[in-house]
Amino acid sequence: MKIKKTRKFNFSVIYVILVLIFCYAPILSLVIFSFNSDRSLTNFQSFSFIWYDKLFNDGQVMTAVLNTIFVAVVATLVSTVLGTLAAIAISRMKKVMRDGLLNLNNLPMINPEIVTAVSLLLLFLSLGIGQGYLTMILAHITFTIPYVIVTVYPKLREMDENMVEASLDLGATPLGTIWHIIIPNIKTVIISAASLCFTLSFDDFVISYFTAGTVNNISIYLYTLRRLEPTINALSTIIITGIIIVLVLSNTIKHKKVNDNEDED
C-alpha cells in the first residue's frame, strides 16, 4: 500500500506528530512531576528526589512491587515452559485436534478480562481454595499461557518437520530432540514469549484484583489507594526507565544480529 502523494504532505506529518504527542504527553507529565519538590501538579517548584525517598520508605508500595515481581517471575517460568511443550505437542497433532485446541486456547485472550477473572474466582470459591499467592499465580498462568502458545506455535510450524524426524532417525530420543534441535531453533520466540508473559503479568489488574485476596500487587495497590501522591509519579518513572532500558537493549541486540547476518552473507 504505497501511493506517492505530494499533496497534504505537511498535514500528514503534523497529524502523526500530534498523535505521538497524545501518546507521550501523559507519560512525560508523570515523569516530570516525580521530580517536583512540591505536591502541586501545576507548578514545578524545584528539582528534588523527595518522592523517591518517600516511595522507598513506603512499606506497602515495596511489598506490592515485590509481590508483582514474584508472581510475574513464577508465572512467566511456568507458562513459558508448559506453553512451549504444549505448542510442540500441538504442532504434531492432526488438523482437527489442533484447530480445536488452538480455538480453545484463544478463549482467555478474547474473553473480556473481567469474565476470566470472575470465572477463576468462582472456581477458587467452589474448590474452597483460599485466595492468595497460589490463586494469583494460577490465574496469571491461565491468562499468560495462551500468549506463549500463539507466539511459539507459528515458529514451530515454520520449522522443517523432517528436522525432528531426522534427529529421531539419527538416534536421538524425543526429549533429546527437543533439547538439541527444537529449542535451539525456536529460542528467539521463546524469549519473546517469556517477555510478553512477564509484561502481561506485571501490568495485570483485573484478574489479580479478583483472585489475589488480600495480596497486593502494584495495580491493586494503585486501584485501592485513597489519595494519589507524587510517589506514584516516582514509581511510574522507575518503571518507565526500566521499560526504556529493556526496549533499547532488545533493539540493539536485534540490530546487532541483523548486522552480523548481513556481514556473513
Binding site: D160, N162, M163, E165, A166, S167, D169, I181, N185
Partner: peptide, 9 residues
C-alpha cells in the same frame, strides 16, 4: 533417512 528438503539442523 535422507529427507526431501535435507532437514539439516
Amino acid at each position: 533417512t535422507v529427507f526431501q528438503k535435507y532437514a539439516l539442523f
